[in-house]
Nucleic acid binder design. Sequence first.
DNA 1: AAGCTTGTTGATCATGCGATCAATAATGCT
DNA 2: AGCATTATTGATCGCATGATCAACAAGCTT
Lengths: 215, 215
Amino acid sequence: MSSTTQKRATRKSPAERAAEITEAARGIALEQGLSAITLRNVASRVGVASGLVAHYQPNVDALVAGTFTAIVAAETEEVAGMLAALPGPVERLAFLLGTLMDGSRLDVTAVWVEAWTLGRRNEALAGCVREQMDAWQAVLQRVVEDGVAGGHFDTGDLEAGGAASLAWQILGMIDGLTAQSLVRWGGVSDRGTHLARAVEGMVGAVRGSLQPSAG
Amino acid sequence: MSSTTQKRATRKSPAERAAEITEAARGIALEQGLSAITLRNVASRVGVASGLVAHYQPNVDALVAGTFTAIVAAETEEVAGMLAALPGPVERLAFLLGTLMDGSRLDVTAVWVEAWTLGRRNEALAGCVREQMDAWQAVLQRVVEDGVAGGHFDTGDLEAGGAASLAWQILGMIDGLTAQSLVRWGGVSDRGTHLARAVEGMVGAVRGSLQPSAG
DNA sequence: AAGCTTGTTGATCATGCGATCAATAATGCT
DNA sequence: AGCATTATTGATCGCATGATCAACAAGCTT
């Protein structure tokens, strides 16, 4: 108990400090949820006075919305990047289902679910949620369209907007099943298998082509 | 401004007052969300002092959990009752999909989604959520099993627990899509159609037999 | 070295929360 | 009518939140 406690935080450049704050908010959101993002909570994690956090952010709602976007956009971009490295739409769709359902991103899922509720009282967050859902849907739609164009998928008698609609549908299924895994861990073992089968039917892919094991 | 304001609430029997309180909590949850259930909020809705609400409930967490169960169990029982009146499993599954996806229960959906998040900090609520998910799954599983036994459905090479697993899967899809409709209203017009097609593929039902229009 | 810019502090305000409990008043019983 | 029971009040405590801002001090410029 001597000198480990420094009275005043070392002075840093605005950019650096701002980065620390958003990073701390990110960590809190992933570990304890978006609603755990408070001025004092973030401040103590950075090792700084609460007023400083307020100084770098217009208000807490904005910090929450920004943190949501940071977390989710990073995930989207990461997955989209991995998709680009795969040879074709079948592999991409299979990889998408497998990756999103493997339970390794439960913390991000929890952020999604909480954002749906918090968006009710945080207008900025609500906008970000819609944006990020659109981004995910766009990624999925692209894969579906490529598959149809290449003859790997057959969406049947779907109208023009079929791929878009299908992408929303698949996204909704993934959301629901991952959210479910948030609450019911051991409930179902082969979520991925069933989902793959369902999606195969929807996009007219060859049976088994989207199975996680085949990815 | 004369006598419309009564200073003291009329004295009522414990059972009656308790019912008023749970009913008020229910209304608040449906209109403003589970997190809007506070002692003062409920009390003012009943027209009573905050202390009285606390007197009728062990704590707020219990009231929230109980309110969740009341809302969701009522829905489950209502739908289950309607199912019983239908002739067979195909009609029942079609009705289930159509009813749950028609957007007439967005308030209940919002309660579900919020409960998933709140369950993280409210142990009693978490237990209720699991209970109610089990109840829904049981209803669905029953329909699927009946359909398989009657030869209407064909779950293919599924192992013994196939119907249970399938029921979880379908439930997850419904949850995800309804939750999605909570945020993205006009996004997709034919959610029901796509879901019906997906489920048809999963349970091996005749194509079009689960379409909402055919329900 | 002096001075100025600005990153940083922490106390402060208003608000809301759950919970508690002595005091109060309405009811029903004798 | 008198009394015992009990439903009801509302003030109160401790705690947490977001926001604000005068005061402070570190570092840069001159």
